[in-house]
Design a protein around this nucleic acid. Structure first.
Lengths: 316, 316
DNA sequence: CTGAAAGCGCTAACAC
DNA sequence: GTGTTAGCGCTTTCAG
């Protein structure tokens, strides 16, 4: 592959001049500019971007850390990031962790070794203390609130949304309310869900909290556990619409009418929830992803909250 | 940031020796190796990956060209790619085109400018003639069949699956069958769908083919058009389960029973289809994505077909 | 306006 | 085993 020297030689100019026309500098005579352009076309030349990035110390490339790449919620965030990255001509790398803390740290190290200008963390498995040192090497933006001054945040008011949802259920007359979460107490959302529950209902009977729910099957499993309890819940707040759909299906198969016998509400306004007419709380993750991207490239440490919407359909 | 010279100086060795311990070469005395390692730790040094890639002419980074990043089908392919990339320690960049041919070509150019070792094309908007010249610069793998000798292919037997599905509908007594597609005749899948239709049913009444269907709303729109036809179809083959779900909802709202009044079958076995008990044809896109990745890093030009599965539920 | 030359940070002959 | 040195392909002073 031709390089900038080949072009210079063949065009009868110096590499500096070639570089100037490549970068649209002024102060290049029209004749030389034309000659260089002609040779570039002739030789089908494209500058090596690695060399450019090495010198510029910028890649226009950011990474998105996400635990799973087949989960609607994270896909929405990624979608938002991509929306903006395409507009602003940035590249984005997907960095799936499966919640492996070491893998996560390795990804953060891509800031240090110059592969990435910034990283968006959609969900983390390290403590902030382990993460924040990497802000030295590049921008880090989180999709959750943290008061660390070096971390930009694009987030939804999870706690507020959980509180309001539980309150809504309570207002509808439910006193035995269960909920599902993805991970356990190591997760920020789980913690907030538990917190919100306690604020509205007081004590949390441990059996009303089902962990490790990611998809429809998990939802079915959760429903089975919950509905065989002596003191079975009359409402379930699922951590996603797919999980909610699994619960719904289980209820149907067991002749439980929704919402009369069992109220169900999910999260993220996914297609399956729309199809099944399930109520949901939409955390507007696409918008959050867009904002996370903007914070990243502006190297901003702002904290931006995006409002959520509770969408009542026929399942509560 | 410290560089390899700083490490060498401080450790009292040459840069070559530092490079050797960095790359786990033999023939370095234990004492020097230890000294270098100590200094690396002390100075919190990480090699600059851009410099390494520049020299090695390899990035261990591949790109995935996809028209939309919020579409279940493409997400499944991406998911497959990521599954394997994590295992084999490759990075993947998402390259969304919105079917803009120029954007697509710009992405292909990332092979030429050394940002990427390979590219997987999940769907394209350029002709193969425009794409194949880029095989000079890196590996290109397609998620559709093409006989071009320089392009590896991981694909599903779309034509076979369409033929079998139409035949299934015919066997069930349907003679008036409509279908939806995403794009029009510029798309390979659309072409194959039309072809398959003609093989089973002969002439295609133009009004039985609805284009531009991507989500539930589009499905609803398609249903509305189709069901107001004088000669309304008794079955619809949707180009995805979300579209199928939209059709289903429209039918429900209009007191049409499924499958008695209207048979519906979708594609890709997505959650909303499972929730609604919709029949579907699963093209196993995750597996296809995994194979596409493997072909890419092996620089293989093989053509690998993945079998599809028709899943009959309650909607046909 | 233009070119020579000094890097960016690293690898890999090559010589000792 | 180890160091010297010549690149990889580009940008950017600094003179002229």
């Amino acid at each position: 592959m031709a390089n900038i020297h080949d072009i210079a030689k063949r065009a009868g100019v110096s590499v500096a001049t070639v570089s100037r026309v490549l970068n649209h500098h002024p102060y290049v005579s029209e004749s030389k500019r034309a000659a260089v352009k002609r040779v570039i076309d002739e030789m089908d030349y494209t500058p090596n971007h690695l060399a450019i990035d090495l010198i510029r110390k910028k890649t226009r490339r950011i990474g998105v850390i996400m635990p799973y790449n087949n989960n609607q919620a994270f896909d929405q965030l990624l979608h938002g990031v991509l929306n903006r990255s395409v507009e602003l001509d940035y590249s984005v790398m997907v960095l799936p962790t499966k919640y492996d803390p070491d893998k996560e740290l390795n990804y953060l190290n891509m800031l240090k070794n110059k592969q990435l200008d910034g990283i968006i963390i959609t969900s983390r498995s390290n403590t902030w203390d382990a993460i924040t040192p990497y802000t030295k090497y590049g921008t880090i933006v989180a999709c959750e609130y943290t008061d660390h001054p070096e971390i930009g945040c694009a987030y939804m008011d999870r706690y507020g949304s959980y509180v309001e949802t539980f309150q809504l259920l309570k207002n509808k007359g439910h006193s035995r309310v269960a909920f599902t979460t993805a991970r356990g107490e190591e997760s920020n959302s789980t913690l907030l869900t538990i917190e919100a529950y306690k604020q509205i209902f007081g004590d949390l009977p441990p059996e009303y909290h089902i962990r490790d729910c990611y998809n429809m099957d998990d939802g079915g499993g959760a429903a089975q556990q919950l509905l065989h309890l002596d003191c079975r819940p009359t409402a379930i707040y699922a951590n996603g619409d797919e999980v909610a759909a699994g619960i719904y299906q289980y209820a149907q198969r067991n002749q439980l009418r929704v919402p009369e016998h069992l109220a169900i509400i999910g999260q993220e306004n996914q297609p399956v929830g729309i199809g099944l007419r399930l109520s949901t709380v939409d955390h507007q993750l696409v918008k959050v992803g867009e904002q996370a991207f903007d914070l990243t490239i502006e190297n901003s440490k702002d904290k931006i909250e995006t409002p959520y919407h509770i969408i009542e359909r026929e399942s509560i």
